[in-house]
Design a protein around this nucleic acid. Sequence first.
DNA 1: ACCCTCGTATGACACCTGTCATGCCGGACC
DNA 2: GGTCCGGCATGACAGGTGTCATACGAGGGT
Lengths: 205, 205
Amino acid sequence: MTTSTIKVLLAEDQSMVREALAALLGLEPDIEVVAQVARGDEVLGAVRAHAPDVALLDIEMPGATGLEAAAELAVEFPALKVVILTTFGRPGYLRRAMESGASAFLVKDAPASQLAEAVRKVLAGEKVIDPALAAAALSEGADPLTDRERDVLREAADGATNAELAARLHLSQGTVRNYLSTAIQKLAARNRAEAVRIARDKGWL
Amino acid sequence: MTTSTIKVLLAEDQSMVREALAALLGLEPDIEVVAQVARGDEVLGAVRAHAPDVALLDIEMPGATGLEAAAELAVEFPALKVVILTTFGRPGYLRRAMESGASAFLVKDAPASQLAEAVRKVLAGEKVIDPALAAAALSEGADPLTDRERDVLREAADGATNAELAARLHLSQGTVRNYLSTAIQKLAARNRAEAVRIARDKGWL
DNA sequence: ACCCTCGTATGACACCTGTCATGCCGGACC
DNA sequence: GGTCCGGCATGACAGGTGTCATACGAGGGT
């Protein structure tokens, strides 16, 4: 191993995908996968233990999301480059990734060749973002929801009734309805279910 | 290439995952990925063109699902072995996979080593199914929904209103409500949103 | 022939949901 | 210190939703 070998940490919850990506990166002579984790809350410890140059993070993971992990890493390891790799090219995800200090944002239906390329580019100080996605993220503005509105919407996603939402969130039923009502209007939806779908699509949930 | 090399077709819509899986399988000396497709409706043509021994199919794909593709393949290529590879270990998926003549059902969070192993096993005539998943599929019985109930539920999933559902399905509003009502009761849900969630979780949608 | 299920439909009723007006409190920002 | 916003609450109203009884025709099974 020469000093020019790039050390990569891979965080992805689906073993088969994670190991397959590791196999893919293993084909690159200048890249070495030094650690693999399956949970968001194991990222920080693994970085401390293995000191990688680049962290490749999936978003949807148990324990903590890749976005949350990225935010933690930015504090303790400002020199570490973070690549977010996700199934869903949701504008809100991209926005949060950039705010968390990520250097690259890749969607899993991009060609595989872009993965190793992105790793090299971020180490060279470049940012890697799909231009179309960047445009979408910029054009649609920020999340208009307040924290409580988002909470209520998230809880409502599984089909809970107002009474249940009120109980879960320790609120009155009327308050729950008010939050839902404002959220529905902000998202230009026609009912809670549509509001949930819209918020999820945009990556705000 | 000797006659003992196993020819595999890979169908998976996310390029990065697909090529990563190909890289993984490529590490096996006795396995060769002879074709890759990104859509369910391209599977049949690719099998005709490349005559693989095993087809590795994702379920969620544009064009047609892997389950639909498997059913088609069973008719035209009864000797071809089908391995279903999916993110979601939903009992209904497993059931439909088996009914479509698949020989293996793998979830993506199983260890990567099981992939090549499954390919070899199905060629040897074995079936590969996670025992826990099989138990779940058997214990919870079959889909209780009628075709129309399923249709209505599927359309209702994005938050459409009764009037919209009626228009989309060319039904009266009352009929839509009847279907939803019976579906809600069959699934022991308390409203349409919960019914959608339950049906989706079980792989019935 | 008879029965059952499914698809389709209507009308009535109770309940849930979404909207709006209004109010209070605390913190943030001039 | 006043104004604005967010969190929280109530009450009233309209409209959407879920349930039920009921009906009829087509098709499958005994």
